[in-house]
Nucleic acid binder design. Structure first.
Lengths: 343, 343
DNA sequence: CTGAAAGCGCTTACAG
DNA sequence: CTGAAAGCGCTTACAG
């Protein structure tokens, strides 16, 4: 059975398509009687407007796109959930694309979304992205775009982030406050802004508290994996017998490291205190439970959509919406992988 | 700047819109010369067809929808990744929606997708779904639909699943083969087909090997959570001192249970052997590493899209595609939470 | 090989 | 309060 159209309703009732359309949209210049008639028939016939035609007329798709580096990842899937849920509330559907940490894929996908004429785009950059022409072309076309988590400082658009530097500072300071003197850092790759900022927060905390920054205590985890946590934990132990604190990015790396410490009978936190980053749901479950920084993925997604929605509305009213940077709060979650604060 | 249209290209070259359209689509009845001219100008002007107009004409959206109970879940996000990746290859974009295990949400979302006029739908049912009128209405409209993982036997459409019963049988048999006599089962909720089938596989394995089925050894985990694994592990130990094997659905529950066994100094596998279900990436990381059934999420997603794509193609050719049930292979992954097989 | 015309199904400025 | 008409940007059957 073919979908019902305005034309059919009009013909059945012996009125014009125009009036049917107006009645359904509750225009004030249609008589109550006609409106009731139309609404009634539309109901019985289960009329649903043809989105394709509506899109073509209104030039709106009521769809947004999201590009993330990796879907199978607790943090990103939380963000997606936040976005999808909020978008649905506001009548938007969400198309999802995965860049696989590749700049080239990211560029292709931006074009796919542009071709699809999505109303707006949400993006978390790939690690390998160093050229931003594709992002800028979105902005030039005046299509609302909001970056989250993995952003580029240089691009002029709204961003939803956490204060990575401050959060890392807090994490490192907690290690210092609980007595650690030789604090290692397992950091993320060199390019992404968030792993840079977390590293800088770590460094600043050391310097502010009279501890010399020692580059040999910093290890780079390319994949932020459990296995890398294990690998660098072994390396750390063999290279630095005097290490007594470890701050990792993110939790998964910490959990890998702790598994090695457990295996080598190195006591956590007595011999080495460990702080992670992200507050992954398993972090409270392992032994010892992991002290970490809570990074609110779901809220980041929700906030990013809300920001995009504001820009979508502004655009409709042909108003300019100046880019806004929203920093969400993080907090240190104290668990058993760090010592208690001295009284 | 406004997007370029066929009309502009036609006017610039002084030819008709028809010819431009045909040239771009490489119709055979356009001269090489004209084609070259059009292609060239389209290239320089960066012409992109207006999807809204194309959709309206072709009645195709080149978009599919996917509805899953929960996005933040390792298995489901793997499935999503499989779907999204495969769809992109075939020129389809994917809209994602989360039912939150609610039948009502699921019905609403089916309508959203239908209104959006997606070309096809992929769905994994909510636990609470007992009425299938919304699913059947999709099928009646002749919109290709493929179910995966959480399916309804009663609905007549293609399905991508694993042989849950066989997999659970294999898991349980492994416990029996390695010497377990009193085998408990932490199962999922009562409604979903997969948790029913896994339970039935467990029961069948006991019966086939001369072990009495004891209902008091079966515990129901409503949320399939780590915490439930812990809770029921304590309950199990207090209610059944003689238990020597445990088969859980899924891994996360097993990991919760093992954490309790570790805490109570109950030796795994010496005192209790444990087998999980799903092969979550952390299962090889915990101590002892978890014997489990590998459930190929990524492949399920990929296969589900491929099946949908076949049906999409058939529909275009106005051919009927009979529903097909695809069962993907699973395998037992032997790790350290179960004993070795006797020689 | 080229193009005029119809039509996909809607929305809305305009006339009456 | 109602409706004829234009138009969104394409595709394609048909005529020449």
């Amino acid at each position: 059975m073919k979908p019902v159209t305005l034309k059919q309703i009009a013909e059945t009732l012996g009125i014009s398509i125009t009036t049917v359309s107006k009645a359904l949209k509750d225009y004030p210049d249609v008589s109550k009687k006609t409106k009731a008639l139309v609404l009634d028939l539309a109901e019985t016939l289960n009329y649903r407007p043809n989105t394709f035609a509506v899109n073509l007329r209104t030039k709106e798709s009521k769809t947004i796109g999201i590009i993330i580096p990796e879907i199978v990842h607790h943090f990103f899937s939380s963000v997606i959930k936040g976005i999808v849920g909020q978008a649905e509330k506001k009548g938007y559907l969400v198309i999802i694309l995965q860049s696989n940490e590749s700049q080239e894929m990211e560029k292709k996908q931006i074009n796919l979304l542009l071709d699809k004429r999505v109303d707006g785009i949400l993006i978390s950059l790939a690690n390998s992205t160093v050229d931003f022409s594709h992002i800028n072309s979105v902005i030039e076309r005046n299509i609302p775009l909001v970056m989250f988590d993995k952003i580029a400082k240089i691009v002029n658009c709204s961003k939803v982030i956490i204060d990575d530097r401050k959060a890392a500072y807090t994490a490192t300071k907690h290690l210092i406050d609980t007595g650690c003197k030789r604090i290692a850092h397992f950091r993320g790759p060199l390019l992404p802004q968030n792993s840079i900022d977390r590293f800088l927060g770590y460094k600043k905390a050391l310097e502010d508290h009279g501890i010399n920054y020692d580059p040999s205590l910093v290890y780079i985890c390319e994949n932020l994996s459990y296995e890398e946590g294990q690998f660098f934990a072994r390396k750390l132990i063999s290279e630095h017998q005097d290490v007594d604190g470890l701050f990792t990015n993110p939790d998964l790396v910490a959990i890998g490291a702790i598994s090695v410490f457990n295996e080598l009978a190195i006591k956590v936190p007595d011999q080495i205190s460990v702080v992670g980053f992200s507050n992954w749901f398993m972090s409270s479950a392992i032994t010892p439970s992991l002290t970490t920084i809570n990074q609110p993925g779901y809220k980041i997604g929700k906030t990013a959509f809300k920001q995009l929605f504001k820009e979508l509305k502004s655009k409709k009213k042909e108003k300019y919406y100046p880019p806004k940077i929203i920093k969400l709060e993080t907090e240190l979650i104290k668990r058993n992988s760090t010592k208690d604060l001295p009284k």
